[in-house]
Amino acid sequence: MANDVARTARGEARLDERSIALRRLVVRTLDGGKRGHVGSSLSPLEIMRVLYDDVLRFRADDPAWEGRDRCILSKGHGCIAQYVMLAEKGFFPHAVLDTFCRRDSILGGHPEAGKVPGVEASTGALGHGLPIGVGRAMALRIKRSDARVFVVTGDGEINEGSVWEAAMSASKHRLSNLTVMVDYNKIQSAGTTKEILDLEPLVDKWRAFGFGVAEVDGHDVAALREVLGRLPLESDKPSAIICHTVKGKGIGFAENDPSWHHKSTIDAKLIDELYQALGAA
C-alpha cells in the first residue's frame, strides 16, 4: 500500500497529445470568459477525459437518453473540464466554449442542468453531488437499469458533512452502481488540504464508510481506464477512486499554486502565457 501511494501520489504521469489538446480547449474557454477556475479545471481533466472517451455510455444527440450513465461533476467549479469534454463529444459545438460566462451563454462558471446538454445536475455549491448521486443510483436500481452513476468531487469539497452523510447511505444501500472519483490535488481554495483540513488517511476513510477503494495517478490515462474497467471495485459496495492529481496540471507556473485556484481576470497576455506553457500547437 505504502509503495502504491508513493507511486501514485504525485500525479506525475506525462501528458499525451490529446491531454495537451484538451488543455488548449480549456485555455480557449478561459479566454472566452476572461476568467475562470484554472487550476481546478486542469486537475480533473484526465478523469473527465477517460470517463467520456472510454467509460460513459451516452448519446450526445439525445442527452436525456434513459440508458445513459449519469455523470455528475460535483465540484462544479471545475466545469471547464466537463464543458471541454461535452464539446469534444458533440453535445454542443466547440464555438460555444468561446461564450463561457458571457451574458447569454449556456456555459456559466458553474454547470447548470437544463441549460447545458449533458450536465446532469446544477452544482457549484459543494457537497451536493453525492447525495443526488445516491438518489439516482437508487432510482436506477428500482428501474432495473444497468446505467451507472459517477460523481466527481473535489478534495476541499469533501470537507462538507453532506458528503459523508451520503457516503454512509450509499454503503447502507449497497449501491454498487455508484462510483465516486475524488480529484485529490491536495490544494483547496485557501491553501493545502493538509493545512486547511487534513483529509488523511483518505483511503481508510472511504473504506471505513463501506466503499471499495482504489488509488490512481489521476493524470495517468491508462491507469484510469484500468481501474474504471473493473467496477464495482468490490461486489455489493459503492466504489471510491482516489485520483492523485496536480492542481494546474500541465501549466508549469500554475502547478501546485493555490493562487491559480480561480482567476477573476485573465487578460490576453496571460492567455498567451498559458498557451506557451502548453508548448507550440
Binding site: P131, G135, A139, A166
Partner: peptide, 20 residues
C-alpha cells in the same frame, strides 16, 4: 434514512431527477 437532512434532500432530488 438517518439523521442526515442534507443528504436526504439531495437523495430525494436524485430520485426526482429519475422520475420519482
Amino acid at each position: 434514512e438517518g439523521v442526515s437532512e442534507q443528504h436526504v434532500v439531495g437523495m430525494a432530488a436524485g430520485l426526482a431527477m429519475e422520475g420519482f
